[in-house]
């Protein structure tokens, strides 16, 4: 791109930022007060924490589609992953990392469980728990305790889509209640917990997969062969 064009782009970005900033300053208060509506309906949502209520009840449909987005990213990655690439040699990891993994991974599992539990009444929930689980898997892989994914087996595929299928099944079953994802207030808490538990596992696997599928490449001669590997 030539210099005038670059300058034009920069100028445009600056002008856009300036215009947006002008528009944002002195903005009157919004006409619709959704926080009040959330607070009003919180008692029938099945959870005490407003963000979780929005995420899994009021706007649960967004969340359903979003899990599909994650699954899709993984599907796309599996589609382009090279079949002949092999996993790095797991035995070549260094003992310090193995130690870190053996201490941190159980704690991460515990923390994931805690976040899942916490989501019902305070910040936390399936996303965060799933992300922590995924991080545990990444750490295990880096420590050489978990191979990269060649291609997901049937069981693994079940784990990947399981949470989504549970969510979808609940959504469909609740159609009988009158609308997609309309929880009966009496059972909302239990259903949301069921969905969240499924999602935690599946999200953890999917997010881990985003790393583990990418990590599929031939082990380079230098990678992971530290001094310790030879002792």
């Amino acid at each position: 791109m030539n210099a005038p064009a670059r300058l034009a782009v920069v100028g445009f970005a600056l002008a856009l930022a300036g215009a947006l900033a002008t528009a944002v300053l002195d903005l009157p208060a919004a006409a619709v007060d959704l926080p009040a509506a959330v607070a009003e309906n919180l008692s029938t949502s099945g959870v005490e924490h407003p963000v979780t209520a929005v995420l899994l009840n009021f706007r649960g449909y967004d969340t359903l589609l979003e899990i599909a987005v994650l699954l899709l990213a993984l599907l796309g990655m599996l589609a382009v992953a090279k079949p002949e690439a092999v996993a790095p040699e797991p035995s070549a990891a260094d003992p310090m990392l193995r130690f870190l993994a053996s201490v941190a991974v159980p704690l991460m599992i515990l923390a994931a469980g805690y976040l899942l539990w916490a989501g019902a009444h305070r910040p936390g929930g399936a996303f965060q728990a799933g992300a922590v689980l995924a991080a545990a898997a990444v750490l295990l892989h880096l420590a050489g305790r978990l191979p990269a994914w060649a291609s997901p087996s049937r069981m693994l595929r079940l784990g990947l889509v399981g949470g989504f299928l549970i969510f979808l099944a609940v959504a469909a079953a609740l159609l009988a209640q009158g609308a997609l994802l309309r929880y009966p207030p009496a059972h909302a808490g239990a259903l949301i917990l069921l969905i969240e538990a499924g999602l935690t596992l599946s999200l953890g696997l999917i997010l881990a997969g985003l790393f583990l599928v990418l990590a599929r490449r031939p082990a380079s001669p230098r990678a992971g062969v530290g001094e310790e590997g030879k002792s």
């Binding site: 963000v51 976040l115 910040p123 936390g124 929930g125 996303f127 965060q128 992300a131 922590v132 995924a134 991080a135 990444v138 880096l142 997010l207 985003l210 790393f211 990418l214 990590a215 490449r217 380079s220 990678a223």
Partner: peptide
């Protein structure tokens, strides 16, 4: 927004960072 802070800490520090660094290694090779 502690919910987002949690997610950002987990995803930003754990996942995206690892993904990008791993990709960097691949490009670097």
């Amino acid at each position: 927004a502690p919910d987002i802070a949690l997610a950002e800490a987990a995803i930003g520090a754990g996942l995206t960072g690892a993904l990008l660094l791993d990709a960097l290694g691949a490009f670097g090779e």
